[in-house]
Simulated scan of single mutants.
Amino acid sequence: SESSDSEGSWEALYRVVLLGDPGVGKTSLASLFADPTLIQSANTTTKEDVYERTLTVDGEDTTLLVMDTWEAEKLDESWSQESCLQVGSAYVIVYSIADRGSFESASELRIQLRRTHQADHVPIILVGNKADLARCREVSVE
Rank of each mutant, 00 (worst) to 15 (best):
Q40V: 07
D5E: 10
S4D: 13
D120H: 01
E104R: 03
D99M: 09
G8V: 03
G25E: 09
D35A: 08
K74G: 04
C84L: 14
R110C: 07
I39H: 04
N43K: 09
T27H: 11
S105N: 12
L65P: 02
E82L: 02
L55K: 08
D99H: 00
L13D: 08
L29P: 06
K47Y: 02
G88W: 04
F33S: 11
S83W: 07
V66R: 02
P36R: 09
S31A: 14
L55W: 04
W79M: 06
W10P: 04
P123G: 09
S80D: 07
Q86Y: 06
G23T: 06
M67V: 07
C136I: 00
A119R: 12
L32Q: 15
Y14E: 01
Q81N: 12
V94D: 01
Y91G: 03
I125N: 09
L64D: 10
E7G: 14
L32R: 15
I125D: 11
E108R: 05
V127I: 13
A131I: 08
H117P: 02
D61P: 11
L109V: 12
K74V: 06
L75T: 05
G101S: 14
D68E: 06
E73V: 06
G23R: 03
W10E: 10
P36E: 11
I124P: 06
V122G: 06
W79V: 00
